[in-house]
Design a binder for these strands. Structure first.
Length: 713
DNA sequence: TTAGGGTTAG
């Protein structure tokens, strides 16, 4: 027997196993011959199974067998698009001499689904250039691309084309999409014309108009369209119910909301997730958070939309602790992981309670899950860090933005303002236009408040004057209130009053701001006048009574204080008691004035006495003008010593002793008292640590006897 | 073709 040369054997093995062989088949290894029907069946299967790999294999097989695969190009495109690979589909599409119109429209709608509107519009324009006739599916998707890209004229031109091709009037698919397009640009008039042009309206078209109205703040109109729809015997679906409930919530129209809740149950949508989510939001907006929780607990498998909704509801109902535990439950129990919506909402909870560590944990989660680049998450982080007194961290997150964002910028300006760094706030404001951002109302409120917090009168005046030249439509009452506050705090009460007189319709906030300034400077007559103005606008404004009584108290006019207190009691008002709190060992410890309920009460009072003695050694003199009740001088001092913020600081000092932490952070629900402020500054010097006091308005970072607010707040 | 949840101030 003749042996084959070794090299030949090797090469034959190589031949059999390398992929090149499969691409250049010989008669022996050629795959079985196939016809169109065979590949059509295969491609249908690939599409049904949504498999990119299988579709690629079939395409490869076609090439190997020499089958003209582009003859089934439209089928291939369809299989790739079903599998979610728009790029593979595009490769086939580009190789085809004349793709079918269905392939054009499928490509366009897939680009839109994948949030690639630019490519969708480019394909649509190519259709126009090549004189192709789009079908109804092309039009029903292309308007979304134009609205996503904020290209109103492009969309309107496409509307014209759809009319020319006879595909708009009478077509609910095209018209629904068009109604949505016009509504996205706030053009409800045009949306209504399109809606009216369709004789045989359906549920989708009606829902599109309802949504259009709610998105543009026309909630009453939305409910009217819903009624029109029902009168035309069009049955609402889950989308419709979910949308119209938004309108009820915005209007706080509980009667309609409840009626619709009943209708949802009757029509069998009671267990559908979108209407349920809308229902819980509606109840929360109507102030019925318990009902929201009831609806949420009835959802079998809440998705991340429902979880986010309930977290937001709890936040808006000021039940932040529960909102956070809901977030924890979501992480532990839900199959749906938190998304950017969830994170920004939960960060807002952290921001509201100034929970720095929780905020950092969510930041870490965002980084790990790839959500740290979402603009909502970023701006929520900037806000949270700023409100936690860590404006440096806020700046770091802001600087990580590729393109600066208006909301983040506003949050950062606010962060600087609250921490007493008005100069940086103004510097950022001056950079705004250079960053390509147009400041809005919030920007001006924040920068003016920052000036007010830092006593920057001239800068405040300059910024305010810019509002008349650079900002249309000029300052609003809120901006005037900032300016009145700034002038008032600087002691220029007459000027503040003069500015106020220029406001066409001053609201109670403006008058109350003037009243607040009068309190700082003990201007009783002007205070009485401002208080009268507030009460003319809102006779039940309890804050005004309290402010006025505080002014009398600081001037020692105890008879008037008692009169007001009686009046307030008769009117049934209850003043929010001052509460301070501190986080120690992952627990919140709250204190009220003279509070003895803490388990470590004795130790805390002992610590407090010692701190008071030590600060007296540094020059602390109790300032009894901050006592708001008539009592003997000695009693006044004692009452000052047991203010809630002092107790919280004493507990903080006690708990941090021997530990490495260099900062003690306390919180107070109202403004920090002036005497406590002086005392806390001195305590920071005594213990050699920073004390951060966050009150209702701002941060006080006290270090070495000085405060970041420069004693101006 | 239509839908529910998100960030800033007051």
């Amino acid at each position: 027997m003749r042996l084959l040369p070794l090299r030949t054997i090797c090469s034959s093995r190589t031949y059999a196993f390398t992929p090149e062989v499969q691409l250049t088949p010989t008669a022996k290894n050629r795959p079985p011959p196939a016809n169109s029907n065979f590949y059509i069946t295969l491609l249908n299967q690939c599409a049904a199974e949504k498999s990119i790999t299988q579709t690629r294999r079939v395409q490869l097989h076609m090439k190997q067998t020499g089958f003209p695969h582009l003859s089934l190009g439209n089928k291939l495109i369809s299989a790739y698009l079903s599998s979610g690979s728009v790029d593979d589909a595009r490769n086939v599409f580009d190789d085809m001499p004349q793709p079918h119109v269905v392939s054009w429209s499928s490509m366009i709608s897939s680009y839109i689904r994948q949030e690639r509107p630019q490519e969708a519009v480019a394909l649509y324009k190519r259709m126009m250039i090549e004189n192709l006739v789009p079908d109804e599916f092309t039009f029903s998707s292309i308007f979304r691309a134009f609205s996503d890209l904020r290209l109103f004229n492009g969309g309107r031109a496409a509307h014209g084309q759809s009319v020319v091709f006879g595909l708009q009037a009478g077509n609910v698919y095209v018209s629904s999409s068009l109604v949505d397009f016009y509504a996205q640009f706030g053009r409800l008039g045009e949306a209504r014309i399109v809606y009216d042009s369709v004789k045989a309206k359906d549920v989708v078209l009606s829902t599109a108009l309802i949504v259009g109205h709610t998105k543009n703040g026309e909630d009453r109109q939305a409910i009217l369209v819903f009624g029109e729809m029902l009168n035309s015997y069009i049955q609402a679906n889950d989308f419709t119910f979910a949308s119209v409930l938004i309108a009820c919530g915005n209007l706080k129209d509980l009667t309609s909301g409840r009626l619709i809740h009943g209708a949802i149950l009757k029509s069998g949508f009671g267990s559908w997730i979108a209407p349920q989510t809308s229902l819980l939001s509606m109840y929360s907006k109507c102030g019925l958070i318990e009902d929201s929780l009831k609806v949420f607990n009835g959802i079998l498998n809440p998705n991340n939309v429902a979880w986010t909704a309930i977290i937001g509801c709890l936040l808006h109902s000021h039940r932040e602790e529960e909102a956070l535990s809901m977030f924890r439950s979501m992480i532990l129990n839900s199959v749906a992981p938190p998304n950017a919506f969830t994170l920004s909402t939960t960060l807002s909870v952290c921001s509201s309670l100034a929970l720095f560590e929780q905020g950092m944990l969510i930041h870490a989660y965002a980084l790990k899950s790839g959500l740290a680049e979402n603009r909502f998450v970023i701006s929520a982080l900037v806000d949270t860090y700023g409100k936690c007194g860590h404006v440096g961290m806020a700046r770091m997150v802001f600087d990580s933005l590729y393109a600066p964002d208006l909301v983040s910028l506003n949050s950062l300006i606010n962060g600087y303002g609250q921490s007493g760094n008005g100069e940086e706030a103004v510097r950022l404001f001056d950079m705004t236009k250079r960053l390509g951002i147009e400041p809005n109302d919030v920007t001006y409120v924040n920068v003016l408040s920052a000036c007010s917090n830092s006593g920057m009168l001239e800068e405040g005046r300059r910024v305010f004057s810019l509002m008349f030249t650079d900002h249309s439509p000029g300052p609003s009452n809120d901006h005037y209130a900032c300016m009145v506050g700034l002038l008032g705090r600087s002691g220029r009460l007459e000027e503040a009053e003069e500015l106020l007189s220029k406001v066409q319709k001053p609201d109670k906030v403006l008058w109350r701001t003037l009243l607040g300034a009068c309190k700082i400077h003990g201007k009783l007559e002007m205070a009485k006048w401002a208080a009268r103005k507030v009460l003319e606008l809102d006779p039940g404004d309890e804050g005004t009574y309290i402010l006025l009584s505080n002014i009398y108290a600081s001037l020692g006019k105890w008879k008037e204080v008692i009169n007001i207190k009686c009046l307030v009691r008769e009117m049934g008002f209850k003043k929010d008691p001052a509460v301070s709190w501190i986080y120690v060992n992952k627990k919140i410890h709250t204190f009220m004035a003279g509070d003895q309920s803490h388990p470590d009460g004795e130790l805390i009072y002992k610590e407090l006495e010692e701190l008071i003695e030590k600060t007296k050694g540094l020059g602390y003199v109790p300032d009894t003008s901050f006592v708001l009740q008539q009592m003997e001088e000695f009693e006044m001092e004692r009452s000052l010593f047991y203010h809630s913020e002092k107790l919280a600081v004493a507990f903080g000092v006690l708990s941090s002793r021997g530990k490495t932490c260099n900062t003690i952070t306390i919180f107070k629900n109202l403004r920090v008292c002036g005497d406590c402020h002086n005392w806390i500054k001195l305590v920071s010097k005594v213990i050699g640590k920073e004390i951060i006091a966050r009150d209702a308005k701002r941060f006080h970072n006290c270090r070495d006897g000085l405060c970041s607010c420069g004693d101006y707040w």
